[in-house]
Each structure stands twice: as C-alpha cells, then as structure tokens.
Amino acid sequence: MDYLITLAILIAIYVILGASYNLVIGYGGLSTVAHPIFFAIGAYTTGLLSVNVPELPAVVNVLLGMVTAVVASVLLAGSALRVSGDYLLIASLGFQLGLLQLIKNLDFTGGPGGLSAIPSTILGAARGPAFLAITGAAAVACVFIIRAIVNGPYGRAISAMRDEELAFTALGRNAMSMKIAIFAIGCGMAGGAGGIYAYYFQYISPDQFEVLASATILTMVVLGGMGTPFGPVVGAILLLAIPQAITFLQLPPAIMAPTQGIIFTVLVLVFLYLRPAGILGNKARAI
C-alpha cells in the first residue's frame, strides 16, 4: 500500500513537472532542457530551510522554494533570450550542469551524497494519504491553472506570439517580457513540486536532477501530446506506471533496474517513431 501511495505521489509530482514544462515548451515555444534544475532549486531551497530554519512553517518553505526558482528562471531567460531563442537551449543546458556541479561541491547542500534528514512535517499513519492529497491537489491545480492561462486572452496572445513574433510585437505586445513570464510561471511550478518532493521523500540528491531527468520530463510531455492541456498527465502516468508493472516479477535488483530502464526507453523510442505528436496531440503540432 505504501508503495502504491509513493508511486501515486511521484506521478502527481511528475504531472506538475510535465504540465509546467509543457507550458514553457509546448505553448510558449521556448526551447529549454533545464526544467529539472528548477525542480532542484525548489527542492534544495525548501530542504535547506526546513533543516536550518526549523521555526519556518512548511508552507512558507515551499513558497520560498517557488520564489527562488522564479528568480533563477528570470535571470536565465532574461540573459539567454537576448541572444536568441535557439541559444536558450544551450544556455539552459549549461545552467543546469553548472548549478548541479555547484550543489555537488558545496558543504551545506550535502554535496554529491545529497541532503538528508529533512523533517517529516506530517507524522503518523496518515502521512502517506495526507501527502497524496496535498500533492494530488497541487497537480490538479497546476493542470487547470495552465489550462486557464492558455485558454483565455493571455493564451491567445501566447499562440499569436508563437505563430508570428514580428507581427505580434508590431501589434503592441512585448514578446520578450511575455516569454520571460511564461518561463517564470513554468519554472515556479517546478520549484513548488521540488518543495513537496523534499518534504515527502526527506532526502534529495543532485543525481536526480541531471540531464536524464530533463529527457524524462520532456518525454512525458512529447509522449502525452505537447501543447495539449492533459497530454503531460497521460505521459507522466504511462511512463511512471508501466515500468513499475514488472516490480511484481520479484527480479533481483541488478536485473530489475536496467530492465525497467529498457522498458522505459523502448517505449519512448517506439512513440517517437510511430506517434511523434503524442497520444493526445494532433499532427500539426509535432516537434
């Protein structure tokens, strides 16, 4: 049971990551791979605050994690987009690698071994279900907030910007500030997911936020359907749940982990070939 609750919480966290990443790349058209680093920024900020400033309430810590992620994302997008849109892809990769290296080499972050002993906040038998309720509610809220953003007048402006940036700007819209805003909203949500993650798992390590994590989240978005409100939800559930299916085979760990990895990667490769627009996507929006 605990195992299923943990899996469900993990799925909810990845729904937040996938949905917010979809806002940035699918709707905003901004090429970035650094989404996990904002997840990391949120997780580390929240984790460090909860360890070092125990008097702060958990909610405040998670919010501060979000704020830090937003600030970092504005700095990155603000400097990279000034060069060009394509440059953001490379700059984001460098930002992610560099910041992870910094985390690995500092003492107060726990170094490569990770940050442990994050307080559990909620105690007792209800801990799992309570976290599931909070994370599930956050995931649903993120999906619907993003849906509201992209369906309203703001979303209309976002798609206009993606279609014809020059015409959009010449109609009196500031495309640059809009891109930065979209980037910041998406990265802020990822930071919030990081905060919840840190509290539930009570342990975070830099390896979880490497480039492989970028590929995982990106894959969830693409597989589910980029630029569709519920695509990332489908993607996150499928990619996390299917590899777990073989857990019941009771294989030794040395075989289990790579086998799950092979299932995951083969699934992705098959989809990339056969259905590049994703399960819920339409062909016109394939990347």
Partner: peptide, 8 residues
C-alpha cells in the same frame, strides 16, 4: 505577406 497568426 500579411504575417497572420496561422493556427488561429
């Protein structure tokens, strides 16, 4: 060349 928003 108009530069209309094609997907809208």
């Amino acid at each position: 060349n108009m530069l209309l928003f094609r997907t809208m």
